[in-house]
């Protein structure tokens, strides 16, 4: 069997976009907008009518139809996202606590998505608590499941948003609401997953208490995960054609690339200003856009890296 690969990606962003000055005027930024602009941000997409579930559904439906994938061919659905917020409209979260106290807590987005998409044969697993690395974890799990012959086709769907009260900045990163769907296929012609690595450091679970330590640990651990991924792929840093980032501050990427020994010009950073960061899997959103805009050619070697607050570091090596 050929190595599992990513045979389709689609994403959905809320229709409404707010630029930095609007966000600042609404009190949704902690930092000076000019500093965030220096870090590469310009604005974010904010769900008004959409719910996380609607974004997930749109992304998954689009992906299945674009790739002409019969829903019944999906063996496994991996859903990433906070289930108690999945159906909350308008960024409203007031209902979340009541929901947990009732049998409505069992109204899970993963199972509903399986039904709504017509994934008749798909078993369903939900992933949570991995912050921005959730979709990576789903893709890794999909790859492993395919590798042991338990599935041929796995649909990974992720949707997250920031409740209205949360503001739009997470540690100097402007964050969009989004949904993203990734199809991992045992027989993919492109985007073969060559290697992956991940590290969880439980010591940093209380991110607020250890903020300075986390800032310090981010870079060395990220370098370690990237080095390890490249080592497993048998690539040198210079072999990487594109780094497909999570859309955090471009400044932090420049530092990380310096550490990893990958030239700055290899960073595909076009979506940092357009979308900003998302909890839903901006690397995969970027991968889709980089393929669409012709940046990526078959055979290119791609490095995807993301960090999940709380604290997880993860990377994938993908051959386009």
């Amino acid at each position: 069997m050929s190595a599992p690969g990513i045979s389709g990606i689609a994403y959905a962003l809320p229709a409404h976009r707010r630029d930095l000055s609007e966000l600042a005027a609404l009190g949704q930024l902690e930092s000076d907008p000019s500093l965030l602009a220096q870090f590469g941000f310009d604005g974010v997409h904010v769900a008004e009518e959409e719910t996380p579930y609607s974004l997930a559904t749109t992304a998954a439906t689009t992906m299945l139809s674009e790739q002409r994938v019969p829903p019944e061919s999906i063996d496994l659905l991996l859903y990433c996202g906070t289930s108690s917020l999945a159906f909350a409209p308008h960024g409203g979260t007031a209902d979340a606590a009541c929901l947990l106290a009732s049998t409505r807590r069992f109204q899970y987005p993963a199972t509903r998505l399986q039904y709504d998409l017509g994934l008749e044969r798909a078993s369903t697993i939900a992933l949570d608590q991995l912050a921005c690395t959730s979709l990576f974890a789903a893709v890794r799990l999909a790859r492993a499941t395919i590798a042991v012959g338990e599935a041929r086709r796995v649909l990974c769907v992720s949707a997250e948003f920031f409740p209205e009260c949360a503001g739009r900045e997470a540690i100097f990163n402007c964050t969009s609401d989004a949904g993203c769907a990734v199809l991992v296929d045992g027989g993919a012609q492109r985007n073969r997953i060559v290697a992956s690595a991940e590290i969880t450091k439980g010591y940093y679970w209380d991110a607020d208490a250890l903020r300075n330590e986390i800032v310090a640990s981010y870079f060395p651990t990220a370098k370690h995960v990237i080095d390890e991924t490249l080592r497993r792929a048998g690539w040198s840093p210079n072999d990487v054609t594109w780094v497909i980032p999570h859309n955090v501050s471009v400044r932090s990427w420049e530092i990380l690339l310096g550490l990893a020994g990958v030239p700055r010009a290899r960073l595909w950073d076009r979506n940092v200003s357009r979308i900003g960061h998302t909890l839903a899997g901006d690397n995969f959103i970027n991968l889709r856009d980089a393929i669409d805009d012709g940046s990526i050619r078959p055979g290119d070697r791609l490095l995807l890296f993301s960090y999940g607050y709380g604290a997880h570091w993860t990377a994938l090596a993908v051959e386009a």
Partner: peptide, 21 residues
């Protein structure tokens, strides 16, 4: 148990970028 990472050695330009950040 804390998993504190050994710091990578970096050139002065990268270190300066880190200081600035």
């Amino acid at each position: 148990r804390r998993g504190i990472a050994r710091p990578p050695l970096v050139d002065l330009a990268t270190y300066a970028l880190f200081e600035r950040s």
